[in-house]
Design a protein around this nucleic acid. Structure first.
Length: 155
DNA sequence: GCCAACGTTGGC
DNA sequence: GCCAACGTTGGC
């Protein structure tokens, strides 16, 4: 069982969007490191924290989702109208993969990036490490549990 | 909008 | 294989 932190810009897909849809394709991954992790490590039943990136004051961890379908060809890479279109990808051997995720919960309150940064407990969380730009990172269960706990408490 | 810190591309 | 140029991410 693995634990993840997955970033999404709320104007593309927010926790509320996922809550409404219940289930979504996590598409648009165009980074080989992330693709390989999704392909080789991510399993059905894994839990992931939903992180809002590029969201002004609303940056932070906002909820939990579950991986319900393991890596398969991302349909957006073959859609010329889509912003994630990749002309070099081969239909028979897709370059890019996506997974399906299911809404689990939206936190009572958001745990902000500032809060995470100022807490020594998260010193080695990939999110706060310099240079980390991967949109999907694997995290420790202890970090996952702590974030869920923090989110359930008032500030 | 800026820019640091990456990653990718392609000529050589 | 090197590396300059370019593109992207994402916090600020």
């Amino acid at each position: 069982m693995n634990y993840w932190l997955m970033k999404s810009e709320p104007n593309e897909l927010s926790i509320d969007d996922l809550k409404r849809a219940k289930r979504e394709k996590w598409h648009g991954i165009r980074n080989y490191q992330v693709r390989n992790m999704m392909r080789d490590v991510m399993k059905k039943g894994d839990l992931a924290l939903f992180y809002h990136s590029n969201a002004g004051k609303e940056i932070g961890v906002v909820g939990v989702m579950e991986i319900v379908k393991e890596a398969y060809g991302d349909v957006t890479q073959f859609d010329a109208e889509n912003k994630y279109y990749d002309a070099k990808s081969d239909l028979a051997n897709p370059r890019w993969l996506c997974v399906d995720v299911k809404f689990v919960q939206k936190f009572a309150r958001q745990v902000t990036l500032n809060e995470i940064k100022s807490n020594k407990f998260f010193a080695d969380l990939p999110l706060v490490k310099k240079g980390n730009r991967l949109s999907v990172v694997q995290i420790k269960k202890t970090h996952f549990d702590k974030l869920v706990l923090l989110a359930s408490k008032a500030v």
